[in-house]
Amino acid sequence: MHPRHLDTAERPFVLIWELSQACELACDHCRADAQSRRHPDELTTEEGKRLLEDAAEFGDGQLVVLSGGDPLVRDDVEELVAYGDDLGLRMTITPSGTHSLTRERIEGLADAGLKRMAVSLDGATPASHDDFRGEDGSFAETIRAVEQAREAGLPVQVNTTVCRQTIGDLPEIRDLLREIGAVLWSVFFLVPVGRGRILEPIDPDEADAVMAWLDEVSSEEPFGVKTTEAPHYRRVSIQRDRENADGGQSEREAAGNDGIQRRTGIIAGDGFAFVSHIGEVYPSGFLPESAGNVRERPVYDIYRNAPLFQSLRDRDQLEGKCGSCPYRHVCGGSRSRAYATTGNPLESDPLCPYVPEGYDGPLPWDDDELTGAPPEGVSLGD
């Protein structure tokens, strides 16, 4: 089901379950601040199956992403995938690029009914990727896993973090995705949580420039493009469509995919939910404010009825310039970044440079000019 046709008050488009925070890697951006050992209070196999049963109450075809840490540190992943598949869930996984992702496990996951596997590529070369992931050989392991997944008939998604360290590699990563046959590029704009606090984010004008470039990539490449924690990608796409339409109605609007009034944005708590390794339910893994625990309440009850989730679904409760923005129903800003930088998940997203016409309130940045130009010395073209 396309998110545009989803009632996000009733069900999330994406439900992530963090199976474990344990992982061999020490990635610079890690939200979970992953550890080498598993937590003793992780959800058990039986508790996980009850969670999947509750997730099935959202409706047929609910998308479930098994995440981590490295979810493959658990030996029950194939059992959980098969159980979810039998319940009618669309089971996917985001393993780490480590030795745990063997050909046997990939084939076992495919046989269990896995629908997609996502891997991370944060550099276009072994040197840049391995440095970012904190593990020599991670790049080679990831490419090997992609090839084996394709042999097993599993579509592969690639996740990439955008920050000062990685922005220069984006064009070459784009080329690499084409070569390896990825079906989707999920581009994550850094949120300063976990180990990600030590990384340098890009500026708002740079973010808009990257999103405009991604919009071009999406029309040129065989794989899809989506952003994570950067919902103003939709605003950039709409504005570019209008410019290309010479002031008339854009193709996206004519097709009914925008109109600004149409609600399409998927953000933390509104079309998105996250279950931690110990059962806490967050609007997002990057917004670690618990609304309840699946050991005490079903995940569907928490998602639909918890005040935190309900407030995030009411775009008219947004504050600052996000609350005044005509694009708030198709964008809504990153609630996770607002929370990480202000402590208030309803505040403005500081990564968005757009200022609504007539807005004269406070702005979440310094008095730098917001030109929308790419950073000096970085080319996002061919």
Results as ranks from 00 to 15, higher is better:
Arg4Cys: 02
Ser20Leu: 09
Ala22Gly: 02
Ala26Tyr: 06
Glu42Val: 04
Gly59Gln: 11
Asp60Gln: 14
Leu72Met: 10
Arg74Asp: 05
Asp75Val: 00
Leu80Gly: 07
Pro95Ile: 10
Leu101Ser: 07
Glu107Thr: 05
Gly108Pro: 09
Asp111Asn: 12
Gly113Ile: 07
Lys115Thr: 09
Arg116Ile: 00
Arg116Lys: 13
Ala124Ser: 14
Pro126Lys: 04
Asp130Ala: 00
Asp131Leu: 10
Asp131Val: 00
Gly134Asp: 10
Glu135Ser: 14
Arg150Trp: 01
Ala152Thr: 03
Ala152Lys: 11
Val156Trp: 03
Val158Gly: 10
Gly168Val: 03
Glu179Leu: 05
Ala182Val: 05
Val183Glu: 15
Val187Asp: 10
Val191Ala: 09
Pro192Trp: 04
Gly196Ala: 09
Arg197Lys: 15
Ile198Gln: 15
Asp203His: 08
Ala207Pro: 02
Val210Ala: 13
Pro222Lys: 07
Asn244Cys: 00
Ala245Arg: 06
Asp246Trp: 07
Gly248Met: 08
Glu251Thr: 10
Arg252Cys: 02
Gly256Trp: 08
Gly259Asn: 11
Gln261His: 11
Asp270Glu: 06
Asp270Val: 00
Ala273Asn: 01
Ala273Lys: 01
Glu280Ser: 13
Val281Leu: 01
Ser290Pro: 14
Tyr300Gly: 00
Asp316His: 07
Gly323Arg: 00
Cys331Ala: 08
Ser334Tyr: 08
Gly343Ile: 04
Pro345Trp: 04
Cys352Pro: 05
Cys352Ile: 04
Pro353Gln: 14
Tyr354Pro: 04
Val355Ile: 15
Gly358Val: 03
Trp365Asn: 08
Pro374Ser: 02
Pro375Gln: 11
